[in-house]
Amino acid sequence: MQNRKATANDVSLIIDIWERSVMATHHFLSVEDRQEIRKEIPLYLPHVDVRLWYAKGACIGFSGINNNHLEMLFLDPGKIGQGYGRQILHSLIRDFHIQTIDVNKQNGNAVRFYLKSGFKVIREDATDSAGRPYPILHLKYADH
C-alpha cells in the first residue's frame, strides 16, 4: 500500500470519497448536516496533513493528520471490510505516530474497528465540535 500527500488538485477526489463513504457508513447524519459538513471540508483540508492511499494503483481512501491526531480516515465504500483500513491505520501509527482519534459514537463499525486496533475510549462529548447532536468518543492508542 502506498500513500502520497494530497494537493489542491485532489479536493474533488477527496470530497467524492468522503461523500460516498459517509453515505455508506454515517446513516445517523441528517441530510442538512451532511451537506453542511461537505461544504466545510475544503476549508478544513489545508489545516491537516492529508494523504491519499493507493492499492493496486487505485486510490482507495484518504486520511488527515494533525500532529499525532488522526482527524479523518475515509475509505471508498467498495473497499471497506477488505483489510485496507487496518493496513492504513497501522501505517499511520507506525510512520506518522498517531496517538489519538475522535470518532462518532453512532458509527458503531468505526468504533469497533478502532477499539479492535488497540485504541481505548478516554472521554466522550455529547456533541461534535460544531455543536451538532452527534456524540464524539475521544480515543487514545493503548501503547501510548
Rank of each mutant, 00 (worst) to 15 (best):
R86N: 05
T25V: 03
N66L: 15
I122Y: 07
A142N: 10
K56E: 15
D16W: 08
E32T: 09
H144E: 06
S63H: 03
I93W: 02
G81R: 07
I60W: 04
L13H: 01
P42K: 03
Y141I: 06
H138Q: 13
D16P: 01
D143Y: 09
H47W: 08
H69E: 14
V22M: 09
M23H: 13
P42H: 06
D102G: 11
S91W: 08
K120L: 12
G61S: 08
N9W: 05
R34K: 15
A55E: 15
T100E: 13
N107M: 09
F62D: 11
T25F: 07
W53E: 04
L89M: 10
T100L: 00
F113P: 05
R132S: 08
N104V: 08
S117P: 13
A130M: 11
R4W: 02
S91V: 03
G118S: 09
R34Q: 14
T127F: 05
Q99G: 10
N109W: 10
D95M: 06
N104E: 10
R20Y: 02
H97G: 00
P133M: 02
L70I: 00
G85Q: 06
E36G: 00
I101Q: 01
A142H: 10
G61D: 12
K56C: 12
L45S: 04
Y141S: 03
F28Q: 08
F28S: 00
P133N: 07
V48H: 13
L75S: 00
H144A: 05
A6C: 10
G78D: 01
M72G: 12
I14R: 06
N109A: 15
R112E: 15
K105D: 13
H144R: 12
H90N: 14
L73N: 02
R86T: 13
G61A: 01
K5N: 09
I80C: 12
L70T: 09
Y44L: 11
V111P: 05
D76N: 13
Q87C: 02
S12P: 05
E36A: 11
L52G: 09
G118E: 01
Q2E: 15
V111L: 13
R86H: 11
V48D: 09
P133Y: 11
V50P: 07
I98L: 08
A8L: 15
T25M: 04
L70Y: 02
F28T: 04
R34W: 07
L13I: 12
G108C: 11
N66P: 00
L139H: 04
D128M: 00
P133H: 02
K105M: 14
H27P: 01
R4G: 06
E36N: 02
N9M: 10
I88K: 00
I88G: 00
C59L: 02
M72W: 05
P135C: 05
D49P: 00
H90R: 08
F62R: 07
N9C: 10
N107K: 10
Y114F: 14
K79G: 03
I93R: 02
M1N: 03
Q99V: 12
